[in-house]
Design a protein around this nucleic acid. Sequence first.
RNA 1: GGCAACGUAGCCAAGUGGUAAGGCAGAGGUCUGCAAAAUCUCUAUGCAGCGGUUCAAAUCCGCUCGUUGCCUCCA
Length: 480
Amino acid sequence: MSLRIYNRLSREKEEFTPLNPPFVGMYVCGPTVYGDSHLGHARSYITFDIVYRYLLNKGYKVRYVQNITDVGHLVGDRDSGDDKIEKQAKLEKMEPVEIAYKYEKSYFEDMDKLNILKPSISCRATGHIIEMIDLIKTLVDKGFAYVTDIGNVYFDVRSFKDYGKLSRRTLEEAKDGERIEAAKDKRYREDFALWKRADASHMMQWDSPWGSGYPGWHIECSAMSLKYIGDTLDIHGGGIENSFPHHECEIMQSESATGKPFVKYFIHHNMLTVNGTKMGKSLGNFIVLKDLFKKLDPMVLRFYILQSHYSSPLDFNEDALQSAANGFDRMKKSIFSLENFVKANNDGKENNAAYEDVDKLKNDFLEAMDDDFNTPIAISIIYEILKISNIELSNPKPNIDKLKYIKNIIDSFVSEILGFDMSDIKNDDCNINSLIEFLIDLRASYRKNKDFDMSDKIRDVLKDSGIILKDGVDGTSYIR
RNA sequence: GGCAACGUAGCCAAGUGGUAAGGCAGAGGUCUGCAAAAUCUCUAUGCAGCGGUUCAAAUCCGCUCGUUGCCUCCA
């Protein structure tokens, strides 16, 4: 079995062969830290978390680099306008660096809740101004960029022969869509800023050979990926909406500077919409993760997102969310039953037996993941494996070895590869779990003695306390 | 306006040439002190519509309709 990845450069599924196996260099565009993370971030970083986890699972040594954009990303994603961080800093009456740290922290908190693994390197743009200046210098020296009278540095897109190799746009098309007046000192309207001269009012600025200023948005990704991974990345990830202009610009900068291909496999995830339309601050359907998690288990969101393929558009709506929550709940219950049974009946013996029906599903799961990370199919196979487990559990004499075998596979697939945190219900402050366990045991003994008045009473009291008791196949489970 | 993607059951969603996975919701059995859980069966003769290619099409080609995205906010 070999991994196949849909490469946006070739627009085809290709077999994945890293440049220097077993090492894999993966770069993913990180957040611009000027606000709390939203649903779109969840989809993006869950997508690449799956890629990262699966590559690790296949035995690759992955260096996963993700940037933190804390300077240079201008409102409008263009070459003029306010810096997003500075704008927010003025709004909150804080230093730009305070804003950046605040929302970087917030970002990682949310990603932790979604059980997203930390990248191997998380690097801030402001920590790499020197690298960016060096890269810009190289581009100017090689004639791919030019310095204007007022001290701006632009990339000369007409010097790059493969313009549009990723987005498949031509310079002619670009002209048609132009709605914003280009800066006056550009030689050509599609040239983009590498370095901008700053006036005194600009809060963040650095010395450079072209005067005091700040970097353009695109250059940070090139500078940091070249520094930490090398001239050619095995994988570059990001959202499809950044395909143009951001990723296109990265390619032009990097390849012009190094003379080598910048990226082997470009992976783009598709958009997330809310109730059928694009999520936007101005549209009133903007969903911030911190708000959402007040009423939604982050694992349900993870499940919801992984139930559709990363390359398909995904709509977020109440009905679909509810069905995902129900489906996830059933999966979780089946896994609890399995784990509880194995825990209670573990004889500690090594188990070398193999089971054909389980092995077939095991292969199907891995085959689905190999096929461009097809998580919807992978999840459907989890249900089929759990069905075998449930049937075995309801046997009068369950096959312990088989259940142990299944448990190991489920642990690996559900927790490690799909990244679901299956740890039990979390307590807020005081630990009342043992108390609940005691009442459950007590009720079990009443039931055994057929004292159903008492057993039902315990169930009712617990229910009034918000604890729903359900008698599972192998014993009682409870839900708060 | 230019470019691109998508349209599969009540809902969500796989499937890119060989006869429609899985989840949710629904119906009916089995099991059970009751309830729940689990399990079994059923639920799209059809994949937006119309043509075409083929022994064979959800899948390839053409047209039409619809939705969404990028070129503005935004991952």
